[in-house]
Design a protein around this nucleic acid. Structure first.
Lengths: 385, 385
DNA sequence: TTGAAAGCGCTAACAT
DNA sequence: ATGTTAGCGCTTTCAA
């Protein structure tokens, strides 16, 4: 039984948040906020303005909450005069609708989740920008989660999004993800998913990728045509389809030009900066050193170049390099890097477009689509002797 | 009066979201989801699993909602056996607590808002990573907003965060922000704010910045000591305190070494890539061309270097360049860039630490702090003849 | 230790 | 055109 520390009554007390770990109460009658002291001493009154609600507007104008609600939603059955009064009062009180309450009653959170492995490396932040543009235009908020390349964190991310009652999700998996039960929960609840870049093959969802196979093929073919004969590949983690596709593109290009495929020249890379260095070092210390490297992504391309420079290996004369991604650094680093360009912004926009389409159509009213965006070979200094 | 299309009764019908723009209903008795067809034809049944609620768990176990709620919160007054049964059932039903409902009743959203002008350029994404790390550890979700350097969008961002009932905000203003009423709303509602990097002077909130003045001073001093005598400055927008501080540092360094301050050598830059180019061009086309440039940030530093290269001006022999920020590109571009390093990750972590401290302490229980982080001069090729 | 009931801020069916 | 009422999923008092 809580009594107001001012008027001493008991019936108008509500809880109102937690302050310094202690329950704060509010007396509706005297509009006083207070907590109770730990042991002795006087109670600490805490004055704090609460965000106004439609109820406040209604009281102020002596009308009902529903009328206020209708006025605010520009409902048709509302008197122009009443509406204006409500809108004015809302502005005057600095009213902001409580999205939590709205979502709860509408069973619609207006929120979309995005899960990416990281966002340091140009690709994911850029993609998110594209996706957010589209979402914002459609009136959706976005919750961005970083799985930090950890499958465990990814599961936690999924739980957060589930609890936030997102209406759809856009995902690029971690390099460790091999189990998909967490994603299946979305499926069960008919929450549409769009995978991009690092897609989940076993799940029948929409996907947005670039043409990894063709990009890799073009990159390696370009090296071959420029006279490189011992072409190595720094390859990606085995659980990611894009690793396989790029590897396949590499292999098929070699096959097409009847060049041997040397297993020693294919080296798996775990996507960390430090490991990229090691992979490059390992390749360049081989007895029969490759004269070119096709790299899985921008990060390892940069590292390969740096390692080559450190070892005094001239690029492109003694070592041709082709990367994948075309991040801004590729153009500025010396020598500038030949690379496979992918439309990152567009990828984000397309993924979000598809997701919103699915959300709008609703369960059972859409079929998953697989969009493959085009890549482009950008020739720079690192691959032309 | 809505009737179930299957059992024809009327009392067990609830709304259940919107499908294809049409209201979907659910009959609780037959657990059938349906919508009504537009004109004629049969109704379209839509089967869709709803997320389970504590009610589902309660029904399943033949206990009350309150008991379930208590069990799930590890409340003390609960039978061990009951708790386990509830937890098992929760897992079995794949229950995820509805954060919207929870937040509504607790008046605590567990959400923090971040507003940044953009996130293409290394600085902001990196900072957000730091901030998110801390927030995640403290159990807070984060809503990230991009104001896109537009004051109008920034106001919209604030409204979104207000409606999402965030418990605190971290902000870096746009280059246009000159009016602060939107931020004052947070103040009125006692929602703590922490500004970083681009702070809002008139507001008495916590701030995290780097030592812009000192950084600039050191950078310019370094140029002077390396024999540069006609040092220009590409300066920032006037509404940002950091622009003034860096400019002041530049001016004071010149003064200290009794060098003239030439107004033609101070050129305002609006933070866009294309304008950075123009500023550099303008400086380098001056009759009395400067022999060094101290640049406001990484973006314009890069552009200055590129323009110099295009014009055939040798860096550092004919033009010394010092930047501010030390993004990864600075080290890789040729010649590598001397720059003022700022601890970006840490800045994010510190800002979030302070914010969470404020949130935890509660209104009136904390005083705003101003934290200034140290910068460091990183000497590379672009400034040493 | 448990259940019943009220209420968080909002929308919408229904009554007026 | 407006008010009344119920309910979204949850927590918390109060009563048992």
């Amino acid at each position: 039984m809580i009594r107001c520390i001012k008027c001493n009554q008991v019936h108008a007390i509500t809880k109102s948040g937690i302050v310094r770990g202690k329950q704060r109460y509010r007396c509706k009658d005297c509009n006083l906020f207070f907590t109770f002291p730990d042991k002795e001493g006087k109670p600490t009154p805490v004055r704090q303005q609460q965000a106004p609600t439609i109820r406040d507007i209604a009281t102020e104008l002596n009308i009902s909450k529903s009328t206020v609600s209708r006025a605010l939603q520009a409902h048709s059955d509302i008197n122009e005069h009443t509406r204006n009064a409500v809108i004015d009062m809302a502005r005057k009180l600095n009213y902001h609708p409580n999205l939590l309450a709205k979502s709860l009653v509408n069973k619609k959170s207006n929120t979309i989740g995005i899960i990416v492995p990281e966002f340091v490396n140009y690709f994911f932040p850029t993609l998110i920008i594209g996706a957010q543009e589209v979402a914002a235009r459609a009136g959706y908020n976005v919750i961005i989660c970083q799985s930090q390349e950890s499958a465990k964190t990814e599961v936690a991310n999924v739980n957060v999004l589930l609890s936030s009652r997102v209406e759809g999700v856009i995902v690029s998996m971690t390099k460790e993800t091999k189990q998909y039960d967490h994603f299946r929960t979305f499926e069960k609840l008919s929450i549409p998913m769009v995978f991009f870049n690092r897609i989940c093959e076993p799940l029948d969802t929409s996907r947005v990728t670039v043409n990894d196979y063709e990009g890799a093929f073009k990159g390696v073919e370009h090296l071959i045509k420029n006279g490189f004969t011992k072409i190595a590949h720094i390859a990606g983690p085995g659980n990611l389809l894009l690793s396989h596709n790029r590897l396949k593109g590499y292999q098929d290009a070699l096959k097409k030009y009847r060049m041997p495929i040397n297993d020693k020249y294919i080296i798996p890379y775990n996507l960390t900066d430090s490991h990229a260095r090691k992979c490059a070092q390992k390749l360049l210390q081989l007895r029969d050193r490759p004269d070119a490297i096709f790299c899985l992504n921008d990060v390892c391309t940069t590292q390969a170049l740096l390692v080559a420079k450190e070892m005094g290996i001239a690029v492109p004369q003694e070592l041709g390099i082709v990367g994948f991604g075309n991040n801004p650094l590729s153009a500025y680093i010396e020598p500038s890097l030949t690379t496979i360009e992918q439309p990152v912004h567009e990828m984000g926009r397309v993924a979000m477009d598809i997701l919103i389409d699915h959300i709008t159509k609703g369960y059972g009213q859409y079929t998953p689509v697989h969009r493959t965006l085009a890549t482009k070979l950008v020739v720079r200094a690192s691959s032309v002797k």
